[in-house]
Design a binder for these strands. Structure first.
Lengths: 218, 218
DNA sequence: TGTAATTTTTAGGTTTGTCTAAAAATATTT
DNA sequence: AAATATTTTTAGACAAACCTAAAAATTACA
């Protein structure tokens, strides 16, 4: 079982590794965690002992598979709690980070499993960031129907289901084409219509339209 | 801002003070917290410095008003989270204590205010223990209509609203009289009927009956 | 009331996670 | 390639929260 401080290091090293997959420097870690490089070195040595990362002096740090899974699980908890705070407690999406920073360290597998179910298994958090599954896997970016996405999720149009010219003209008028980035601003629970943003303009679209657009989540 | 360890001491001292209001010994604190008396002494001295309790060497400890309020607030959070876990995530009432022990230390007034609202301002936790208000006040035990109580809440019958003989005979047949202890086993959300336990027997009663029985919560 | 038993505190030490200052390794520049 | 600059690690210290062992105060009781 990791301590709170250890969990925070692991989570931040995970994020840093996205940017520099070849290895993360202790200085970068210290900066991210707003601490001194010497403290980061100390902690990194302890985490290497615990086999959640490999550390080569002066060369930097890489998460092990175990470390990667642990970090992903913390991120999973953080993002699930954010969904709870926004969807259930009606916080604004920009108010939830600090609280989720605390909640992500609650230890209970059962709690997270039930929270996930209570929230209807969300795949993105209120900022549109993906929520990894319980095995720590981030969903491979695959095409989905626009109608299956949630509020604030972002994606790139990668195809259409119905390809009649009426439909394509409809898309053309709204500057939607293959490669176009789309963000869901609002989604109505009742009729599944949505407001989407396309190149800084917002459009209202019906369920029928959304069911005919393939999107790759980004 | 108190540390997690300090909060746990405070909460437990609060509970111990219920049993011995004249002062709590450091040994009793150590036993409750499963630590050594010397550690309890150390912590108590630190908490006295922080003005949340008064400490007289060899004589024991009493919470200050500030300490009392802080402790009550931790208990409030613990019990609100228990309600959430049972009512929203469908945990059993005996599975929630450990998780609530962690959640009670999340620092955010806004979170607790919204959680309270989300849970519709419960006054008791799933074990029937009272939830103090945001000022740290425990509701004075006062009579309430049975229909206003929640599942698992316990009380003593202290009066009736409608006192026609039909009604009193109805109560008599079920061994309900002034002084009788009643526990709500089940409460139906739809028609507000309930199953109650009276001297080890369970009875089904309608909303109309429940609206005419005054109960003192225990 | 004085001695024994118990409770409580003090003294000194450990671990965790941090710090500063200095040393060592690596990288850069001329 | 040598000198300089930068990055990174090591060494030693500190606060929090705990421990053990010993001392001091209180309580029990003969």
């Amino acid at each position: 079982m990791l301590t709170l401080a250890e969990e925070n290091y692991l989570k931040n090293i995970f994020h840093l590794q996205q940017k520099s997959p070849e290895g993360v420097s202790t200085n970068a870690i210290a900066e991210k965690l707003e601490t001194k490089p010497s403290s980061a070195t100390d902690m990194v040595q302890k985490l290497a002992e615990k086999n959640v990362l490999t550390y080569i002096k002066y060369k930097g740090v890489t998460l092990t598979e175990e470390g990667r899974k642990t970090a992903a699980n913390i991120i999973r908890k953080h993002r699930l709690w954010e969904v709870f705070l926004v969807e259930k407690l009606h916080f604004k999406w920009d108010e939830v980070h600090e609280i989720a920073e605390q909640l992500e360290h609650i230890h209970s597998e059962a709690l997270i499993a039930r929270l996930d179910q209570f929230l209807a298994f969300p795949t993105v958090d209120p900022h549109g960031d993906p929520i990894p599954d319980s095995q720590g896997n981030f969903k491979k970016t695959e095409k989905k129907l626009l109608s299956n996405l949630r509020k604030l999720q972002k994606g790139i149009c990668v195809g259409v289901k119905e390809s009649g010219s009426d439909f394509l003209q409809y898309l053309g008028k709204r500057n939607i084409a293959i490669g176009t980035e789309i963000t869901i601003l609002e989604k109505d629970d009742f009729d599944e219509s949505m407001t989407i943003e396309v190149s800084h303009k917002s459009h209202f679209i019906t369920k029928k339209i959304a069911e005919n657009l393939y999107i790759q989540i980004i």
